[in-house]
Amino acid sequence: MSQLANAPEAKPWWKFGHVWMVVAGPAIVVVASFITLYLAISRPDPVTDENYYQKGLEINKTLGGTPSSAAPAMAARNHAATGVPKPVDAP
């Protein structure tokens, strides 16, 4: 009987600090998800121009690039993919 009289008083769960550490993590994630949702809704991405490919080709032409300027890169890519060396040009 004396052991029960000396036992500490049981406190409710919300009075323990460790419980709040466990609850705080998911609570922060929920708040952050609502902030992210607000930002996604209030600041939508601009629509990509439907003619983006043609505009990109025009930009390449103004910069002096032509499809043949990619030839060294294409040859290296093909060599890396197949292992076949580039034919040697005869003089």
Rank of each mutant, 00 (worst) to 15 (best):
M1T: 08
M1K: 02
M1H: 04
S2D: 11
Q3L: 15
Q3C: 09
Q3D: 08
L4S: 12
L4W: 10
A5S: 11
A5C: 10
A5M: 14
N6K: 14
N6C: 10
N6D: 12
N6L: 14
A7E: 06
A7D: 06
P8F: 04
P8C: 08
E9T: 13
A10L: 14
A10V: 10
K11M: 10
K11L: 14
K11A: 08
K11E: 07
P12I: 01
P12V: 04
P12L: 03
P12D: 06
W13Q: 10
W13K: 09
K15A: 11
F16R: 07
F16D: 11
G17D: 11
G17N: 11
H18V: 05
H18C: 05
V19D: 06
V19P: 00
W20T: 02
M21F: 13
M21S: 09
V22R: 11
V22A: 12
V22S: 05
V23L: 15
G25R: 08
P26F: 00
P26Q: 02
P26Y: 00
A27M: 13
I28N: 02
I28M: 11
V29M: 07
V30L: 06
A32Q: 03
S33T: 11
S33D: 05
F34I: 12
I35E: 02
I35N: 02
T36I: 14
L37S: 07
Y38L: 13
Y38N: 06
L39I: 07
I41Q: 13
S42K: 14
D45N: 13
P46C: 04
P46S: 13
V47E: 14
T48Q: 14
T48E: 14
D49I: 15
D49L: 15
D49F: 14
E50C: 10
E50M: 13
E50G: 15
N51C: 07
Y52S: 12
Y52G: 03
Y53E: 11
Y53P: 00
Q54W: 07
K55Y: 05
G56N: 07
L57A: 05
L57P: 00
L57V: 04
L57G: 02
E58L: 05
E58W: 00
E58F: 01
N60H: 01
N60E: 04
N60R: 00
N60A: 06
K61C: 04
T62R: 14
T62F: 08
T62Y: 08
G64A: 02
G65V: 00
G65C: 02
T66Y: 01
P67Q: 01
P67S: 01
S68L: 15
A70M: 09
A71F: 04
P72A: 04
P72L: 02
A73W: 06
M74Q: 13
A75F: 05
A76E: 12
A76G: 12
A76V: 08
A76T: 11
R77I: 09
R77M: 12
R77S: 12
R77A: 13
H79N: 10
A81G: 05
A81Y: 09
A81Q: 15
T82E: 02
T82Q: 02
G83N: 05
G83K: 04
V84A: 13
V84D: 08
V84R: 12
P85Q: 12
P85T: 09
P85G: 07
K86D: 09
K86W: 09
P87R: 03
P87M: 03
P87C: 01
V88Q: 07
V88W: 01
V88P: 00
D89R: 15
A90V: 05
A90W: 03
P91W: 04
P91L: 06
